[in-house]
């Protein structure tokens, strides 16, 4: 589908390596309380290159429509299962979007799902972090789409792993939020307290991937072949 040119690879590595480095550097080097907000600004900025790439590619309207459907489905899914806390199909659908529509679309599906669903679940300073977190999960699913599409076991592994990493990242944000600085003791305490939540979340990713991967993938394949996307 999309080939990874060297130029693009450099662009991606700037986004995916330098910005986290900035966040970490700010956290450990600057003895400044504001870096929770600086990281917030970076999270917003980090989304911009992905959006710009999406704009620049003369994307087919039909592809955009399919993306919109996936975003709507993941938001609806978050609704449908909101009675079970932390049990949501968003990550699974975002991963599938990355697999079948490409890395950029995966990022957008994640970012937009977070943005849109927070209209109903509450917008706040955490929104950019969720956008970035889910976006990157979709992005990597797109980058490694070949092996992930072939082996279901790899896909499940990625799903569980992505869920755990997402929770750990959001815990970093919570620590920054609570203390204004990164205190490891607090982080360890928080991660331990959040362990059941993380487990439920990772398990829900696995279950939804197991349920959705084959049928949804088949449907997307069919649409691609039928309309020549």
């Amino acid at each position: 589908m999309e080939r990874l040119t060297p130029k693009k690879a450099i662009g991606y590595s700037i986004i995916l390596v330098l910005i986290p480095l900035f966040i970490a550097g700010g956290a450990f080097l600057l003895e400044n309380r504001q870096y929770v907000w600086i990281s917030l600004c970076i999270a917003v900025l980090a989304c911009v290159p992905f959006f710009a790439v999406f704009e620049k590619k003369t994307a087919d309207v039909r592809r955009m429509v399919v993306l919109a459907v996936l975003v709507a489905l993941s938001v609806l899914g978050r609704f449908a299962f909101s009675f079970v806390p932390h049990f949501k199909p968003v990550t699974a659908i975002v991963i599938l979007a990355g697999l079948y529509l490409g890395a950029e679309s995966g990022f957008l599906c994640g970012a937009l799902s977070a943005f849109l669903s927070n209209f109903f679940f509450g917008q706040g300073p955490w929104t950019p972090f969720q956008m970035l977190g889910w976006g990157i999960i979709g992005f990597f699913a797109g980058l490694f789409s070949k092996p992930l599409r072939k082996h279901l076991s790899l896909l499940l592994l990625y799903g569980g792993f992505a869920g755990a990493i997402f929770s750990l990242l959001m815990d970093v944000w919570t620590v920054l939020w609570l203390d204004g600085s990164f205190l490891f003791a607090r982080y360890a305490a928080l991660v331990a307290a959040a362990l059941p939540v993380t487990a439920i979340y990772a398990a829900s990713n696995l279950i939804f991937l197991l349920l959705l991967a084959r049928p949804l993938g088949k449907k997307l394949d069919r649409i691609e072949r039928k309309y020549g996307l």
Partner: peptide, 20 residues
């Protein structure tokens, strides 16, 4: 600044009640 993105966003917003 982001016409395509906004289009995807507005379509998703419309699809949520439609799909329900």
């Amino acid at each position: 600044p982001f016409p395509r993105l906004s289009l995807v966003l507005s379509m998703s917003l419309r699809y949520i009640p439609l799909f329900k």
